[in-house]
Design a protein around this nucleic acid. Structure first.
Lengths: 149, 149
DNA sequence: AGAGTTGTAATAATTGACATTACAATAAAG
DNA sequence: CTTTATTGTAATGTCAATTATTACAACTCT
């Protein structure tokens, strides 16, 4: 099972907000057009990002802005905000290993810490990347398009 | 979205095979009882592990064995064998970012390498853990139960 | 030949993802 | 204060993946 596209959509949203903040009002329709999903999907993701205090959304009048400096928002913050995994657990453990079996009743003892270790490996990488990295690269690629002659 | 329980089930299967190989014939029914899932689920996972040449399964007569030394089978081998993610890609990318939008047409340029870096973080942790670690701990916990007095 | 087991297909229930329509609540602007 | 644009949210639908389950042909040993 893959991690929900909510994550890449959320990063895309941040890239749009920062790139277009001076030229357009950032509405859910505007974002939906760039990402190419339904505006309601965008609004739900924005609600999650708002709950995590990563963005502010103006009700009624519309408009979205980022609440923190870009280098203070990591991929982990976003990943966490859009709830890509249940209960924060990356791995789905089979529910009822047989307690009558020596292996079945100890499999959690054996595996749990190892699964945490693996999940931490993922999360550490997520923490290394910030929106500042995303915006820097976005601007680079947009600039590169303009200098094509 | 969580990683399918096929992964933890597969590890559980290996722990059972090694623990009970001298005392029982390892059939899909035997494994299904310890894991507490349907025997057909076990057989499908065994087929995937067989395709990856991690186990051998005796048709007709029944019985399953591990093909390699335990320290030569990593969690990554198992994870890969049971196809926990589509096309080997951990992240589901939104399908059609708008090519008319400067951000939309560059979001892949910006994100792809970062997503690979994160996925590699996960896979590196998976590669660090082997079945030898699992069996060592399993035997420790089973032994610990016996010495309770 | 009989018994036990695997490989495999078919079917179903459940869940999450994402799409879509609709509309009340909100806030600015005329 | 009404109009207008937009957000928040509910309701509904479609699709795909997971897991369960039944059934049975193919296989291998006794």
């Amino acid at each position: 099972m893959q991690i929900s596209s909510r994550f890449t959509i959320a990063v895309h949203i941040f890239a749009c907000i920062d790139t277009f903040k001076d030229d357009f009002k950032i509405t859910s329709d505007f974002l939906a057009s760039s990402v190419d999903v339904n505006p309601v999907i965008i609004r739900k993701i924005l609600l999650q990002l708002k709950s995590a205090k990563l963005v502010e959304v103006q009700r009624g009048t519309g408009g979205t802005s980022i609440t923190r400096p870009l280098d203070k928002i990591t991929f982990y913050d976003i990943y966490h905000a859009v709830e890509c995994v249940e209960n924060g657990e990356l791995f789905h453990f089979h529910e009822h290993p047989n307690q009558e079996c020596p292996v079945g009743r100890n499999i959690h003892n054996v595996l749990d810490s190892k699964l945490v270790q693996i999940q931490t490996g993922l999360e550490n990488e997520l923490k290394k990347i910030t929106l500042a990295d995303v915006i820097k690269d976005t601007q680079y690629y947009i600039q590169k398009e303009k200098t094509r002659y």
